[in-house]
C-alpha cells in the first residue's frame, strides 16, 4: 500500500515538474501574472484610496466583497467548532 502511494506521489510530482518548464522564470517582471491587472492597482492606489499600502487597498477596497466572504468563512468555522464540541455539564471535573 505504501509503495503504491509512493508511486502515485512520484508520478504526480513528475507531471508537475514537467509542467513547470512552461512557467515564467522566477522574478520575471514580464510574467503574465504581473502584467494584467496589478499595474493598475499599483498606479491608482494613492490617487483613488489615499492608502500607500497596495495590499490593504486591494484587500478591503477593490476586492472588499471577497474579504466579506472570507470573514463569513471564519465565522462559520467558529460556529462549527462550538456546535461540535460544546456541552454544559454540572460536574466540576475539567
Amino acid at each position: 500500500m505504501k509503495v503504491f502511494a509512493l508511486i502515485i506521489v512520484i508520478m504526480t510530482g513528475g507531471a508537475l515538474v514537467y509542467s513547470t518548464l512552461d512557467m515564467p522564470d522566477w522574478g520575471d517582471p514580464n510574467s503574465p501574472a504581473s502584467l494584467h491587472i496589478s499595474p493598475r492597482y499599483i498606479e491608482k492606489t494613492i490617487e483613488e484610496t489615499a492608502t500607500p499600502n497596495a495590499v490593504t487597498s486591494v484587500l478591503a477596497d477593490y476586492r472588499g466583497y471577497d474579504t466579506l466572504g472570507e470573514t463569513t468563512v471564519i465565522f462559520t468555522a467558529a460556529v462549527v467548532c462550538i456546535l461540535l464540541l460544546r456541552r454544559i455539564e454540572d460536574d466540576k471535573t475539567l
Binding site: A78, C81, L84, L85, R86, R87, I88, E89
Partner: peptide
C-alpha cells in the same frame, strides 16, 4: 473561541 473549545473539550460549567 477555537482555542477554548479545543483545549477544554467544549466543557462548560453552569
Amino acid at each position: 473561541s477555537i482555542f477554548l473549545n479545543l483545549t477544554t473539550f467544549g466543557k462548560h460549567e453552569k
